[in-house]
Design a binder for these strands. Structure first.
Lengths: 194, 194
DNA sequence: ACGTCACCTTACCAATTGGTCAGGACCCCT
DNA sequence: AGGGGTCCTGACCAATTGGTAAGGTGACGT
């Protein structure tokens, strides 16, 4: 009973480590030490480092997708966009490692990206349909929905997580600043979309 | 005389490798093999892997900054923004490893980011002044220049380099698509800024 | 009492890593 | 001819890596 608890603890710690330090930079020994456990315990629950990473991706990305879908459910037009972006920002502030993990996966590419793509495909499709519909209704400027998605993704991801870039322009990554950034980003997007 | 040539070859190959595969994923042995040289040769020219990386950063980032400043020189208003973004896109298409390197550095953080920040500080300051001036003149919407810089950086970087994300929404990373993306991004930015 | 199963550990390993050390080849200057 | 500098290499190394094999421990059903 307490055994399954260990598995969950490993998953949580691994999500944090992979999301902030990256796959290569996290060794099983480090991870084990942070958990107060031997490396072999990790390998017992998840046959290899790759399988552990896959498990982390599966849980984290699915949860992220659900959060986004949930935030948009029942809304239309600009409020829907606003709500989804707010939801993502909330995650970016409270659990930055989750977006960090997503970025790490796209960085690694290959099979890892495939895995995430499959998980997020329905969410993306949903967003594409939403945008197409809103444009047809005249609630948004006519643009290529795919490119719009990429731009928005990049912007949110960057503004939410690129701490070093923020520092470069003199913005300290505090909670207050994050709120300002979110508001500013929404104004920016609204101006471009409506 | 031909000796200094080796040094340059190492720098070029290292830029490519670090920019596409990342610092951790590139071993000195790999790098040496690609160059048809022994690892010790690399260590002879650049005392350590860290020093090599630092040298790569210094050359690549400085050149990037110069390209941006050059693109903006002599222009004002929207055409200046357009010109700089075109310049960055040109690099993104022809030498994606250069932007990849920049992203890798911000990912690693710490001293590496400091290094880049110092190199790019004058460019950033220049851009900030430009934006402030344009806003005062009424050529651009009033927003926080810093946040605007981060948003634009993230968007350009993402749209230009996030191949995996592009694939996720069904955009293949071809030259033709890159041109479309650039045009779309400019329309997007223009709508938001003017 | 006994087997067994889930869970975790110790002991160990082969491969890879960045880095050191001691040369070797070549060129230039005297 | 010979000394010294530049450039490159082979031999070697300690540390770290992900992973294997085998053993221990406790709970639980019979």
């Amino acid at each position: 009973m307490a055994g399954s608890d260990t598995r969950e603890r490993i998953l949580a710690e691994a999500l944090d480590a992979f999301g902030t330090r990256g796959f290569d930079a996290v060794s099983l020994d480090d991870l084990a030490e942070e958990l107060g456990v031997r490396k072999q315990t990790i390998l017992y629950h998840f046959g290899s480092k790759a399988e552990l990473f896959a498990a982390v991706i599966d849980t984290a990305v699915v949860e992220l997708g659900e959060a986004m879908v949930e935030a948009g459910r029942g809304r239309t037009g600009w409020p829907a966009v606003e709500s989804v972006i707010n939801a993502v920002f909330r995650i970016a502030v409270r659990q930055p490692e989750r977006l960090g993990l997503l970025r790490e996966v796209t960085r690694l590419g290959g099979e890892w990206s495939d895995r995430v793509r499959q998980s997020l495909a329905p969410v993306i499709e949903r967003a594409r349909l939403f945008l197409t519909l809103e444009m047809r209704r005249g609630n948004m400027r006519q643009t290529d929905p795919n490119l719009l998605l990429v731009s928005t993704y990049s912007t949110v991801m960057g503004v939410a997580t690129e701490v070093e870039v923020l520092r470069a322009v003199g913005i300290e990554p505090t909670l207050r600043e994050a709120v300002r950034r979110r508001r500013e980003l929404l104004r920016f997007l609204e101006a471009a979309l409506r």
